[in-house]
């Protein structure tokens, strides 16, 4: 006997991600899922980003995904922000941060006292792209030393993200990587992907990235307000 079924295999994961999203929106948080290969510079970028946002008066927290260790978490300690270490080793060494890990991390964060949460995913251009965590935006960090071909090799990652930060641009004089070719390849995989060239080390592109974050937060806040307002109109009419 054959039983026909049509069901999303990630239904449980997606349902939990939607719960996460509802929690983010209740607290007016803007949540960004940062993904990249290992060593592309996610932590360096986040430390610099959060220091700058703090100066502008924004309150940030980090959910730090790693298979094991607390090395990256410790790098945030000078910033005196909330960091939740989400290690996947107890869950079979998963290669990505799952919505269940984000859900658990949210119980440990002072949500009412935050503006931004950054989820630093596990360094990997394949698996993290597959999973929705409830985040508002997905960002991929692609460092120049990785070369121009990565968008073609990992299309799902570059299709799923709304922004690509081309990082370590201070190394350009020492590399063969051609930024024009890289930008063309990004466009061929996702013509709607925004691209910002950045160097967290020397500060190139930082203001553009910070504006992207702040504008994204404002747009999200506006969308939620409009939804609430529309719901109010519907319920009273």
């Amino acid at each position: 006997m054959k039983i026909p079924v049509v069901s999303n295999v990630l239904e449980e994961s997606d349902a939990l991600a939607k719960k996460n999203r509802a929690t983010f929106d209740v607290h007016n948080l803007f949540v960004v899922n940062i993904m990249s290969s290992p060593g592309a510079g996610k932590t360096t970028l986040l430390v610099r980003t959060i220091a700058e946002l703090k100066q502008k008066g924004y309150r940030c927290a980090v959910i730090e995904g790693d298979i094991t260790s607390t090395i990256d978490s410790e790098r945030f300690s000078p910033l005196e922000i909330s960091v939740v270490q989400a290690n996947t080793a107890p869950f079979g060494g998963d290669c990505h941060v799952g919505s269940h890990l984000v859900h658990a991390a949210l119980q440990m964060l002072p949500l009412a006292e935050l503006d931004f949460i950054f989820i630093e995913n596990i360094g990997n251009l394949v698996c993290p792209a597959e999973f929705y965590l409830g985040e508002h935006k997905k960002v991929v960090v692609l460092s120049l030393p990785e070369g121009e071909d990565k968008p073609m090799k990992y299309p799902l990652m570059f299709r799923e993200c709304q922004l690509c930060l081309v990082s370590k641009t201070d190394l350009l004089p020492f590399l063969d990587t051609d930024i024009a070719t890289l930008r063309r390849n990004l466009d061929l995989v996702n013509g709607d992907l925004e691209v910002i060239e950045i160097s967290a080390k020397v500060g190139i592109g930082l203001e553009n990235w910070l504006s992207w974050l702040v504008n994204g937060k404002s747009a999200q806040h506006l969308a939620i307000s409009q939804n609430k307002s529309n719901a109010g109109i519907t319920s009273t009419s």
Partner: peptide, 16 residues
């Protein structure tokens, strides 16, 4: 290059 994927994404249980 502004295109949207309508099929070919996701894992679906189809038959038992």
């Amino acid at each position: 290059t502004s295109v949207r994927v309508v099929r070919g994404r996701g894992v679906t249980l189809t038959e038992i």
